[in-house]
Design a protein around this nucleic acid. Structure first.
Length: 784
DNA sequence: TCAGAATGATTTTTT
DNA sequence: ATCATTCTGA
């Protein structure tokens, strides 16, 4: 077999060719002179510092993407490298797409030839496919997504006779993910790390899982990088080729890299050559330590903090000029983030007008919060503002619900960003499983998924039989099925059903090369009865699911054939659905990174929710700092208006709890913040929590901060049971500790009058005259 | 084998 | 409260 490196077009010798891509790019740029125009001095420096390692610390809104794309254009324009010599990695497909788009705008068609611009995973997959045999895989290995992974783990756990109740597959998936994120192959896992799961069996389970992946000819997301690392270490020749190939490396969002990604980059950036000019890699990492918000999934802020040590002689360039937000917003964000220790330190500044102050508004409860924000947005709309310039950024997705409810009643169009991904939906995954089963007889996970979808009467017993046969004969499930229908092993009914199914698959497979893949997709979905299954389902979302299936088939059009479609789908299948309608954005703070809006609403700034209790409990100070960075990200999304909210009462898991305003509110600079009232005149006397609003600047002696401290030091209980606070005392009025008894008449601020039905510690079940039966906290009702 | 009942968990999310 | 998953009985 030919050496995959040599046999590939991307690895042509790097000699410049007249009329080649680089030359064309250069010509296009020369005529389109001045791609540096409009950049400030630091940005230009970042673009032009091509030799040796460079770290660009790019604060929010400082033109980070612009620098990256211009830098690529500059490398091409100066003829330093051809598009195929540049490695350019991002985290998300969206970012990669954006970058590709912007570079091609700058350079013309030339970037069509940038084969190494992509996500860590897509590039890892590309490299792994070239050297699959070095990882005991075939080059057409399947990429398992989380869903497949979990199902596979369940099988492994079952085989190892491990109680899934006590040791959930999800937990093991997370543990293994953690290892892979840290670049640990089974043999590297420290013994101690194994202890936390299934009585120390974790490590051997990891071994079993990896072995199973190999037999399935599959890799999970973590493997895409981990196997790269193994190959690079095992085969210095292979590594050396890539090191030579990637003359220039660019990394986006460097603060989000995990250990595996870091090691991957470091290996590729190593320059073992003796020649001085080649000793330092031309690697340019762009990031912002203040926007590192993915520590919980393995990102190592340390990577960026350590950059200068890792790459001696690295040039560090700070982009501090913010082009997005007005003065007050920027000041508030900067002041807030300054409370973090362990940062590289940047001072964002703007030449923009001061603009509107950041506002903080207290609401009685989360419903009032939603009502107020809804009303305000209606105002914006009435004033002629576009809804798509408004975003609501929440800490946790459960907060979205109330906003959705409110928007539906108001008739305000909104769109949720993030949420369940298109390809994660059951109907899409089912359809894909069908396609995978057609294309690959050996894709057991796919076959198993749809063998009884729609219901065919093939239950666990039958599937188990197939599995047993597969194990005994070392065959795939489909092959086993084929063998078993020739025997008497199966009862007549399932036997006939399986035979029909196998016949169908044979028929579809025969059509693979004869009809278009989109046609085949429709045929498969129809003849399998899958479409009919949803048509017969009367539930509300059935129509939407059918619509999704159509969308899926439509999205296949852009691919050569079914296999080509499937190969890409695991890595790059996100829907940027055409959303033309002018609508309010609703998303989590995490999903908002990298976006910007004129007006940003930030509800739920309460202790326990934001900062989230769990981040505090599990990560301590670093957890708090990450939450603060999240707050910083939220604020810096806003161009003109940032509106913060907190609610005194919030329902958590169906129960009303009192809350304490977030310590982050106390950390805002008073001079840049206005405290306002909830605008949705729900007649609650405002005085009650006026006093609860201690905006005395960013000192650490404010009541709110002390409360927060007291809480942090005290009980580990989450949300509930705050020590008596000023506003809570004010709110409680007359109950003053007296225990309520069943049958008493009570009054609740929110639900009105009612009768106590049950007492359970500090929780009451009250039958309210108007609102019906509710569980409430005792301190929130008064004796009527 | 399947539907309905009980059980349990519930931050953030990409690939 | 709500949702998803697992269990149990027909």
């Amino acid at each position: 077999m030919a050496d995959p490196l040599e046999s590939d077009d991307d690895f042509l010798p790097p000699a410049p060719r007249a009329g080649g891509i680089a030359a064309r790019a250069y010509a296009s740029l020369a005529s389109n002179q001045g791609y540096l125009e409009g950049l400030n001095a630091e940005q230009i420096e970042a673009v032009e510092s091509l030799d040796g390692p460079v770290l660009v610390l790019a604060g929010a809104g400082t033109g980070k993407t612009r620098v990256l794309t211009t830098r690529i254009a500059h490398i091409l324009a100066t003829g330093r490298a051809r598009p195929g010599d540049i490695l350019s990695v991002t985290f998300t497909n969206k970012a990669a797409r954006e970058m590709r788009h912007r570079v091609s705008n700058m350079v013309g068609e030339a970037v069509e030839g940038m084969p190494w611009l992509g996500t860590f995973h897509s590039i890892g997959a590309k490299i792994l496919r070239r050297h699959a045999e070095l990882a005991d895989l075939k080059s057409d290995f399947t990429i398992l997504d989380t869903d497949d992974q979990i199902r596979l783990i369940k099988q492994i756990l079952q085989a190892a006779d491990i109680d899934e109740k006590r040791w959930p597959a999800r937990l093991f998936a997370a543990i293994m993910d953690g290892w892979k994120n840290r670049g640990l192959s089974p043999e590297d896992v420290p013994g101690g790390d194994s202890a936390g799961f299934a009585d120390g069996k974790a490590k051997q389970l990891y071994v079993a899982y990896q072995a199973r992946l190999k037999t399935l000819n599959a890799a999970d997301f973590g493997d895409l990088l981990l196997e790269n690392l193994r190959i690079f270490r095992k085969e210095p020749d292979v590594l050396a080729r890539y090191q030579q190939r990637f003359r220039y490396m660019l990394v986006d969002e460097y603060q989000d890299t995990n250990v595996a990604q870091y090691l991957w980059l470091r290996l590729l950036a190593q320059r073992p050559t003796v020649s001085v000019e080649h000793q330092r890699a031309n690697i340019c990492c762009v990031g912002d330590d203040d926007q590192s918000i993915y520590g919980w999934r393995g990102a190592e802020v340390d990577n960026i903090l350590r950059f200068e040590k890792d790459f001696p002689g690295a040039k560090v360039i700070r982009l501090e000029r913010n082009y997005r937000s007005t003065g007050h917003i920027l000041a508030a964000a900067s002041h807030l983030i300054a409370h973090n220790q362990g940062r590289l330190g940047k001072t964002l500044r703007t030449e923009d007008v001061p603009g509107e102050k950041v506002t903080v508004t207290g609401a009685w409860d989360s419903e009032e919060e939603a009502r107020t924000i809804g009303a305000e947005i209606e105002d914006w709309r009435r004033q002629g503002h576009r809804l798509s310039e408004i975003a609501i950024l929440v800490r946790a997705s459960f907060q979205m619900r109330e906003f959705e409810d409110r928007f539906i009643t108001l008739g305000l169009p909104y769109r949720v960003v993030g949420g369940p991904r298109f390809y994660e939906r059951a109907e899409i995954r089912d359809a894909l499983a069908y396609f995978r089963s057609v294309c690959s007889v050996t894709d057991d996970l796919a076959f198993e998924r749809i063998v009884n979808v729609p219901k065919r009467g093939l239950g666990d017993a039958t599937v188990q039989l197939l599995h047993d046969y597969s194990r005994a004969h070392n065959t795939s499930l489909q092959e086993s099925a084929r063998a078993l229908i020739a025997t008497e092993e199966l009862k007549p009914k399932p036997r006939a059903t399986i035979r029909d199914l196998i016949v169908s698959f044979d028929r579809w497979r025969a059509q693979l090369d004869h009809i278009s893949h989109t046609e085949l997709a429709e045929v498969v979905l129809d003849e399998s009865g899958y479409t009919a299954m949803w048509q017969n389902e009367r539930s509300a979302d059935a129509a939407g699911r059918l619509e999704n299936l159509k969308e899926l088939v439509r999205s296949m059009e852009g691919f050569e054939n079914m296999r080509g479609f499937l190969e890409h789908i695991a890595l790059v299948m996100d829907t940027e659905g055409a959303n033309d309608a002018d609508s309010v954005y609703l998303m989590t703070l995490h999903a908002a990174k990298g976006l910007e809006f004129d007006t940003v609403y930030l509800p739920g700034w309460e202790e326990g929710l934001f900062p989230h209790q769990r981040a505090l409990d599990e990560q301590g100070r670093s957890g708090l700092e990450e939450e603060r960075r999240l707050a910083h990200v939220g604020l810096t999304r806003a161009r003109k208006n940032a509106r913060l909210f907190f609610a005194i009462n919030r329902r958590i898991h169906g129960m009303w709890n009192s809350t304490v305003p977030s310590r982050f509110l106390d950390e805002l600079p008073e001079a840049h913040v206005d405290v306002t009232e909830a605008a949705s005149g729900f007649a609650e006397p405002r005085s009650r929590f006026d006093r609860a609003e201690p905006f005395t600047g960013s000192r650490y002696d404010t009541p709110g901060w002390q409360r927060a401290q007291a809480r942090a030091n005290g009980s580990a209980g989450r949300f509930v049971k705050t020590p008596p606070t000023i506003e809570a005392v004010a709110v409680r009025r007359s109950t003053s500790g007296a225990r309520l008894a069943v049958g008493e008449r009570v009054f609740h601020q929110k639900f009105g009058y009612g009768q106590v039905r049950e007492v359970d510690g500090d929780k009451l079940t009250v039958s309210f005259d108007k609102a019906g039966e509710k569980r409430v906290v005792a301190s929130f009702v008064d004796r009527a």
